[in-house]
Amino acid sequence: MYELAYSRPESLTEALALLAEDEGAQALSGGQTLMPVLRARLAMPSRLVDLQRLPELAGIRLVEGGIEIGAATTHAEVAASAHVRAVLPALADLAGGIGDPAIRHRGTIGGSIANNDPAACYPSALLALGATVTTSRRTLAAEEFFTGMFSTALEPGEIVTAVRFPACQRAAYIKFRNPASRFALVGAFVAQLPSGYRIAITGGGHGVFRWREAEQHLDGGGAMAAITEDMLDLGHFTGDLHGSAEYRHHIAAVIVRRALSTLA
């Protein structure tokens, strides 16, 4: 790791000030992605501003029609939360499957979505459920928030403070694991909302996206079993050592069907 300075602000205001005054400063949440990046000397922030203990970013709250999760909430807390289990069990399952137990004890929802790794789990849940992201400056729909791989609508000095999800009992997430990293080679979050079906795919390579053709198929009364990759643009996928674009494309359809079949 290159030399850097570390700050642990006491309040959101202080954190924002630290980030504002130093262009090279970077927000640090759970650090479960950032630390390995720093150890590999792939990033050189001058300062890390630790958000993990900010009171403004803490807590899981039931809100009207759903649930709000503070950005500094760990995956383990989400997985174990009685509130989340009650309103959005699929999200608890998703959180309980990220990384491994030690990673889940530190990694946070805010950190995960701000990083927007194209193989991360959380972004698919936000997109499929139509979650809204609250930042230090504004509120954004998930669809506006995620702008491509490792890319979000966050501006310099802006941080995620909370994510709000609608309640949804009929939702499921399936992760098809990369056999080495155990990240999602492909992941699919399916949800049946009052407005209709929503399906989000992660792991494709360009960042999380909605599979609108499949949503329309289902909303039009099409059979779950009839969903195939023929309805999915291959261009969403890239290939690597662990799976070609064609394979990921195929797996996406398989796990969407399997996820849907658990909704009944």
Binding site: G31, Q32, M35, P36, R39, L48, A76, A102, I103, S181
Partner: peptide, 28 residues
């Protein structure tokens, strides 16, 4: 060096964490 092996696992405030994926200053 990629937070995968877990050989460094310790408990911080009662929870298992990978001590290679956390700064010492964070444990203040």
């Amino acid at each position: 060096d990629t937070s995968q092996c877990g050989a460094c696992t310790v408990h911080v405030d009662g929870k298992a964490v990978k001590s290679c994926t956390m700064l010492a200053v964070q444990a203040d």
